[in-house]
């Protein structure tokens, strides 16, 4: 993935909002990659968490929007307990999700779930899944 980092491609508003929602200082990230190495979903991500942090640092909201990373994140907090810079990356992922969900865009449509799926899944899967992926 190549990125054009220029003044016109930097979305400062996105950086500001993610900082505000997550309460985390993204600029503290020094790209060590401990988060990526700790992530249990890493092999299924289009970009590892370390790269997500870069994209936020450079305000690359268009690139960020295309990646599945925050939507495959299971909020397991592995990255958070291990980050040497004390950044709660789990909260950063939540902030990215909320930026989209707050535009009333669902990532999972409860009405489209198959009845067999709902009957099969435990209640906590639905409760937590809807909280993370519906607006």
């Amino acid at each position: 993935m190549s990125l054009l980092i220029a003044l016109r491609t930097i979305n400062d508003e996105m950086r500001r909002k993610i900082k505000e929602i997550s309460g985390q200082d993204i600029s503290k990230c020094f790209q060590c990659g401990t988060c990526s190495a700790s992530c249990p979903m890493e092999e299924h991500l289009q970009a590892p968490p370390r790269r997500i942090m870069t994209l936020i640092q450079f305000g690359q909201s268009e690139a960020l929007d295309l990646l599945n990373t925050p939507w495959v994140c299971a909020s397991c907090h592995n990255c958070m307990v291990r980050c040497p810079r004390g950044i709660d990356i789990t909260r950063v992922m939540e902030a990215i999700r909320l930026l989209r969900l707050r535009q009333n865009i669902n990532q999972v449509e409860p009405s489209n779930l198959q009845p067999e799926e709902v009957v099969d899944l435990p209640q906590i899967a639905m409760v937590s899944g809807f909280r993370k992926m519906t607006s």
Binding site: P110, S111, L113, P115, E116, V118, V119, Q123, M126, V127, F130, R131, T134
Partner: peptide, 13 residues
């Protein structure tokens, strides 16, 4: 109960 859950999955919201 699962039948109600399947008819109204939104209740978990």
């Amino acid at each position: 109960p699962e039948e109600v859950h399947a008819l109204y999955p939104e209740l978990f919201r």
